[in-house]
Design a protein around this nucleic acid. Structure first.
Lengths: 345, 345
DNA sequence: CTGAAAGCGCTTACAG
DNA sequence: CTGAAAGCGCTTACAG
């Protein structure tokens, strides 16, 4: 065997296969114009030698790093965890690797941190999660460096910058329709913070559904919230201690729905017996509380997979077609998750 | 300016600074033996040109990738999120980057997946989280490749393989002591699954604390569990529907403690009025449930920082001393988090 | 304290 | 369909 102490290089493979290193390179990069028998022979040697091209050499010579960056801010967010899961699996399938970087959204040296990553690593693409994907400074730094980006659920789409998202309006409409179909008419909503576009979208869906049933939203049943447990609990307390209680509450996210559950417990209201509650996100906790929460599952991992594909397609002409068909701004289907926090009245 | 269209290279810096590229390299790598004025001059030019050495070139020439790998299995686990947060921040401070890979612990091609990552990327070190850090196949693959590893909270330490952990026994002892100090004497425990060493360690700490107070653990008050919400709920149901109820329950992790809370609610038992409950882990949900959970915070981010440091120290002689002092198997201090689920009886 | 040469392991034009 | 040469941007011995 020609395997010496060190790991084999392309030269070893070429020698063993009786071809030039250029041909080995062609085979490994799926380039056309190699005779099938030559290709097979090379692959056989590659397998036998357990040869893997070294990323640093490929990157230096070819200008492609096979690295995708994931920039995120909130580490505890389940959203990021799912993004990462989807992204890392798709990267593996496509021969890429995922480099993660936690950035504080208002760090004074944000620009330098990004520059450092981009200039040192030269990732072939970057996935941005909220709120970083809406940060003009981040976007500018990446644009100037020429790094392709995909925005995950940005506040609003940017011309020419690919994005992946779900349809918050329709999802909110659907979950409201579920409550309506269960016979609920006095349905309250706890909104998200005004500075997040998802808040408005979900509220819009809620209103759309009501109006389609000729119900005008009752201002008394619309409470502000902040996407936090405490804000949901406090809003619910107001809603539920009034004279004419709602029979159902739509919390604009799961954390607030958990707050609603806590408030209901405290007031001695049984859920779903006396009150139906729905959330949004399908957080891990949503299935663990009592009663398990009816909610909307965001297709986060799928969105991340799509993001990776869009980034990889930039460098692989053979993959460009399907992605182009999917469009620059992709919207992925969500899923209604019906559990035990909802019941017919 | 000599900044052309492309980003500057070491040659540009050397020319601008009037030195050889070797000297620039020395300065950038903090090598000794460069006159201070020369060093300053080089750094000035580096700054002006916004020069960052390209990782792929450094890696190819120097054999160091400045990449640390993080191998994990469960993406939803808060543990992994915190590990990653700590690791990515420390990496940044040390000029490294974190590459993450999600591996299924019993994937048939686990070996290949690891080989692919190791041979392609040549990470300078690898951080392994449970249960991967206890997987002999993973360990063997990494050992053979010569990749330095640090195990995060492994089941048991391995001679010669660095690890970082917390002291489960003492932490369990402390939280049990808290209950004892509140006057509780009939304290139940819901154990973790027998195949995880943390289960035994936490139980041991529990027993130690009781015995120190001359209390022999009552077999009736010891329930098996599986670290899941459902197992905690079911165990609590048994414990709480008996004739002689415990006044406090120590759930061996937070998920099970949430199950205890649910069971207590269902049985109409007020927490902490009629029952004190403690968990372990300080999961994000622990602070969000009602009542907020008294628990133990694992120093996970700090453990990850330490892991990165140990890995980097391997290549940097100047950093080796402090780490050597800290030892191959580090134990980091935990923290008791007292919230509202505990009260004097 | 500083530098000229060689080389890391690939890919990119360019030939044939 | 296949290959020989050059070069990517650094670091590593080796000199002086």
């Amino acid at each position: 065997m020609s395997t010496r102490g060190a790991s084999p290089t392309i030269v070893d493979v070429a020698r063993e296969a009786g071809v030039s290193i250029k041909t080995v390179s062609r085979v490994l990069n799926h380039e056309p114009g190699v005779h099938q028998s030559t290709r097979d022979q090379v692959l056989k040697v590659v397998e036998a030698l357990r040869y893997r091209p070294k990323q640093s050499a490929r990157s230096l010579a070819g200008g492609r790093s096979f690295l995708i960056g994931l920039l995120y801010y909130d580490p505890s967010a389940i959203f990021v965890g799912s993004v990462q899961q989807g992204a890392t699996l798709r990267c593996r399938e496509l021969g890429y690797h995922l480099v993660v970087e936690s950035l504080h959204n208002d760090a004074p040296d944000l620009r330098q941190q990004i520059d450092r990553m981009v200039l040192a690593l030269r990732p072939d693409g970057m996935i941005l999660t909220p709120p970083l994907c809406d940060n003009p400074e981040v976007l500018a730094a990446l644009r100037e460096s020429g790094t392709p980006c995909v925005l995950m659920s940005p506040e609003r789409d940017i011309r020419g910058v690919p994005s992946v998202r779900m349809d918050d309006v329709h999802a909110a409409e659907e979950i409201t329709n579920l409550l309506l179909s269960l016979g609920h008419r006095r349905i309250a909503i706890i909104k998200g913070p005004p500075d997040q576009s998802a808040s408005a979208a979900r509220y819009q869906g809620f209103v759309n559904a009501l109006r389609a049933h000729d119900i005008e939203p009752d201002p008394e049943l619309v409470q502000p919230g902040a996407f936090t447990f405490a804000s949901g609990r406090d809003a619910a307390h107001k809603l539920l201690s009034g004279r004419r209680r709602p029979t159902a509450v739509f919390a604009s996210n799961d954390d607030m729905a958990l707050g609603v559950l806590a408030a209901a417990h405290r007031l001695g209201l049984s859920v779903p017996g006396e009150l139906s509650v729905v959330g949004f996100d399908d957080s891990p906790t949503a299935a663990l509380v009592w009663p398990p929460l009816t909610t909307v599952r965001q297709p986060v991992a799928e969105m991340a997979r799509a993001a990776v594909e869009m980034l990889v397609a930039v460098q692989r002409p053979d993959m460009a077609a399907p992605t182009a068909a999917a469009g620059l701004h992709q919207v992925l289907p969500h899923e209604l998750v019906v559990r035990d926090s909802t019941r017919a009245r």
